[in-house]
Amino acid sequence: MASGRNQKSSRPIRVLLAKPAIDGHDRGVYVLARAFRDAGMEVIYPGLLPTPEEMVRIAIDEDVDVIAISLLNGSHMTIFKKVMELLKKNHAEGIAVVGGGIIPAGDKPMLEKMGVSGNYGPGTPMSDIIDHIKKRARESRSKKW
C-alpha cells in the first residue's frame, strides 16, 4: 500500500453488530463498534436492533464471519433461538453467533448448546471479547467456500 504499512494479507474479519440502541445506552454500541474497528475488523452496524429475520439476511448479504448480538432486556432466549434456526434454514450455519449483554448465568449453558458462545456480561474486558470473536471468525471461515 502507498502508506508503506504492512498490510495484512488476510481478509479483515467481518462482523455484524446487532445491539439495541436504547436512550442512554446507545453509546455502548459505538464503544463496541470502535473497539472492533480498532482491532482491524469491518463492522457492519445496521442501526436499531434488527429482527432475527433481518439479522440473518444482513449477515448473509454482507458475508460476515460473525454475528455479535448484545441484548439487555431478557429477550435473549427467543431471539438467539430464532437466529440459529434461520441461519440453518438458509444454509448459513457457518456464520458464528456470539452473545453478550445481560444474560442470567442459568441461561448460558442453554445458549452454548444452541451454538451461541461468549455470552459476556457487562464489565468483561474488551480484549476478551475481541479475542473470542477472532477465534470464532477463524472457525467460521474454515467452513466457507
Partner: peptide, 26 residues
Amino acid sequence: SSPFSGGSFLGNRIRMEETVSSSNIF
C-alpha cells in the same frame, strides 16, 4: 477503512436498512 488498524465502521445501512428490508433490494 482505518489506515491504522485496517478495520472499518460500515454504517450506511443505518439509513438504508428499512428500505432494503421492505423492498428486498440487495
